[in-house]
Design a protein around this nucleic acid. Structure first.
Lengths: 232, 232
DNA sequence: AGTGGCCCCTAACGGTGTTAGGGGTGATTT
DNA sequence: AAATCACCCCTAACACCGTTAGGGGCCACT
């Protein structure tokens, strides 16, 4: 396994050379095309014009390839704009993170259990910490806040993208599914689950953006309470 | 595929009969023993003394078996105690949910992208909604709150259980890994990531219970702001 | 006695991650 | 010039996976 990524090994073949970065990009294309379940070593290898076993020269195993893929996804994040106070900045961070996970197929599942920090995540994280400290949060609170926000966004997107029922990617649209689940709630025995029956409509409200907004604003409210009143 | 679970099909064999519930319990044992990655149809079949293909009589595919497994995990949740105001109740819900995901191997990964609600989740959910409404939250807010809390807890546990680096299940203890990650943060170029270097200690603080507590209390603070001051 | 639902079986298909070992190419050393 | 060595890809194989097709025995009911 080479410690270098592409150049300056001292000597190398004349061909363009297969790099870890190229592997990550290939994996990203396969992910977009076939989803996480369809992402196999053989397909990624084929995508770069190579046989599966050759990948193991560049990567210890599939898990490590997924780490690379994770960082490749993070690299697609929009750079955070500078304007606004801490609240609009953190709000923007949450919404941009959610959009990033939405825009790349199965990105939430890839990122989910993967703390393995690539360089691109470092950049975003450092920026976020910078703004929290600037806003008056203590070092400890700033660090804890990054965990709170990322945990929530990851969990939320994972949940909103889950099939919700066996009737998923069929012809049924989001609204159809929501209506069907709502009716299932309504049909429950009232004596056992009175609240589920009563709140069936609220629980299956199909506007997921509004749901996300509610959650984010609650979290921001909670964070604001850490600051002295004049800095909120 | 039978719509009934175990009894009253009209007529049945005399043998104890393999039920979906028995499958779920078997899957739970395999999960505990071999983890999610090691949970295969063949192993679950062997666990109930049957060959793999036979499972497909009781279950459409592996995904459906995982739904059953999901509900079997939810069934292990401790029943919520009745005392305390809404804040101690929601706090208790978060901590119990986290403990449930901790106590069962890979439970977080099973539950993660799986909204598919089994009957046992229904019970917990109804109870939670009941207490939120009783505390003075509107119907819509109560419903949204359940999503906020479950999303966060799932995301948090998924994150805290992630290997964090290639040096995971080796002899390295949690504290060793934390120290190693901290030093890696410290070793970053200061001009590129000044905050990561400065907050390396805070970011890798190994007390995950404290981290969880911070996050939960922030969320509860944010929720409290929805109530009229006298009901907080 | 026959029929039909129930429930498990064997056998197989195509796919998976991963390893062992071989070979060729080009730069470096002798 | 010859030998060496690192690099990088290959073929072949292993053990396992989810899933399906089709067969057969057992039981209850007609």
């Amino acid at each position: 396994m080479p410690e270098n990524d592409s150049a300056t090994p001292g000597h190398n073949t004349g061909t363009p050379a297969l790099t870890r970065e190229a592997l990550a990009q290939a994996a990203l294309r396969v992910l977009e095309r076939d989803g996480l379940a369809g992402l196999s070593m053989r397909k990624v290898a084929a995508e770069v014009g190579v046989k599966a076993a050759s990948l193991y020269w560049h990567v210890r195993n599939k898990e490590e390839l997924l780490d690379l893929l994770n960082d490749a996804i993070m690299a697609l994040a929009e750079p955070p704009p500078r304007e606004g106070d801490w609240r609009v900045q953190m709000r923007g961070y949450c919404w941009r993170y959610r959009r990033l996970l939405h825009d790349n197929r199965d990105a939430a599942k890839v990122v989910a259990g993967r703390l393995a920090p690539g360089p691109h995540l470092f950049g975003l994280l450092d920026d976020q910490l910078d703004r929290l400290r600037e806003a008056g949060f203590s070092d400890a609170h700033a660090a804890l806040t990054t965990y709170l926000l990322s945990s929530f966004v990851q969990g939320f997107v994972l949940q909103e993208q889950s099939p919700m029922s066996a009737a998923q990617a069929d012809g049924a649209s989001r609204l159809d599914v929501a209506a069907e689940v709502r009716d299932r709630f309504r049909a429950l025995p009232v004596e056992d689950f009175p609240n589920l029956v009563a709140l069936a409509g609220d629980l299956t409200e199909p506007n997921l953006d509004a749901r996300f907004e509610f959650c984010v604003e609650r979290i921001l409210d909670g964070l604001a309470a850490l600051l002295p009143p004049e800095r909120r």
